[in-house]
């Protein structure tokens, strides 16, 4: 177990290499450029291929091809680039091809800006592309989680044959901190029996998302849904911090949760009984776990760097009888711990 001092983006790229990523295709866009910069340098050294494609559309389609051959594949981009990739993400889902997509979020809609934002929660968790599908989404809140969750994203992608996404805050990507490297060497990836070149001789293999005959498509869509139901049982991750005796629980993901934790520490020092609930998997959403907390705690404060997106999921899970307030920061200026402590105090 190696102890390193890395930027979040470097931790993520290193995690991808430790997870045996073999193929990366992407296109320059701020603020995610240091992920491809790291991989363009390091991936060829371990026998992987890095491609700067002519566009995000080309990049995601290169992923479709490389994934069909059974490689572990990934791309990274920032919000407008992820919008362009939505077509490919829908096709990856429909074709049941594993791939990992990293979105280091910036402002939108449109060109928006390049500052910190959580404006893509809806796009990431509710589809983005056309059709009936779910993409598992993970939200890291430290450099360590950038490393850990990219590895998990590859594992989940392979296990369910689905694209997975890391929804990353730019501050987590640029912040430098301690990272413990779990793997001393690259992980072994199982041979995918369904991939091109791996299928038995004489057998035909078609990878497709088109189903025209009878009720084939209906069966296919129910199959995708069944996989999602299994994910809901097995792939939920979250963190609950000092919620047991809490009178108010702050909910946030990624960077907001990181700041929120400091706000909870300030509150506890002043004998304010506050806790933090942090979904790490945004899809599948930790519904049961949140419900369990609401049995004891009746006050929730949702904080996001947008005008209110995850809060809709919280309202859906907790229902109307629970007191849910929202504090949004749709600007590049993240809330401070003191600011969030003040918001907590306002509510009790």
């Amino acid at each position: 177990m190696e102890k390193l001092f890395l930027r979040g983006s470097e931790a993520l790229a290193l995690g991808a290499i430790d997870a045996s990523v073999k193929f990366y295709a992407g296109y320059p866009i701020t603020p995610q450029n240091d992920i491809p910069e790291f991989l363009s340098r390091e991936l060829p050294k371990v026998g992987g291929k890095f491609v700067q494609a002519e566009s995000e559309v080309a990049a995601i389609n290169m992923l479709l091809g490389a994934s069909a051959c059974g490689l572990r594949v990934m791309t990274s981009s920032s919000s407008p680039g992820i919008s362009l990739m939505q077509e490919g993400i829908s096709y990856l889902s429909g074709s049941e091809l594993p791939a990992v997509i990293v979105n280091v979020m910036r402002w939108g809609p449109g060109l928006g800006g390049i500052g910190a934002s959580q404006g893509d929660y809806h796009q990431a968790t509710k589809g983005g592309g056309h059709g009936d599908y779910f993409v598992p989404v993970f939200a890291p809140y430290s450099a360590q989680e950038m490393y850990d969750l990219i590895i998990r994203a590859f594992d989940v992608a392979d296990k369910y044959r689905t694209p997975t996404m890391l929804l990353v805050d730019v501050m987590i990507s640029l912040m430098k901190e301690k990272v413990i490297r779990r793997f001393e060497k690259r992980s072994e990836v199982k041979i995918k029996s369904w991939a091109f070149g791996k299928v038995k001789e004489g057998e035909q293999k078609i990878i497709k998302s088109l189903y025209l005959k009878g009720n084939d498509l209906e069966r296919h869509n129910w199959k995708l849904y069944e996989k999602y139901k299994v994910m809901c049982e097995k792939e939920v991750i979250y963190e609950s911090y000092l919620c047991d005796d809490a009178e108010i629980v702050l909910i946030g993901f990624g960077m907001v949760a990181r700041i929120g934790k400091s706000a909870i520490d300030i509150a506890r020092e002043r004998n304010v009984k506050a806790g933090l609930f942090r979904p790490i998997s945004l899809v599948p959403f930790p519904e049961k776990e949140l419900e369990a907390i609401s049995k004891k705690c009746k006050k929730f404060l949702v904080v996001e760097m947008n005008t209110g997106q995850m809060v809709h999921d919280i309202q859906r899970v907790l229902g109307k009888d629970i007191d849910i307030s929202f504090y949004g920061k749709p600007s590049s200026y993240a809330p401070t711990p003191e600011e969030l402590f003040y918001k907590i105090k306002e509510q009790i």
């Binding site: 320059p28 450029n33 491809p36 910069e37 363009s40 890095f50 700067q52 002519e54």
Partner: peptide
């Protein structure tokens, strides 16, 4: 990073 008109062999961040 490299661009579509960068000459062959051009060394860049990507």
């Amino acid at each position: 990073q490299t661009s579509p008109t960068s000459p062959k062999g051009f060394s860049s961040k990507s």
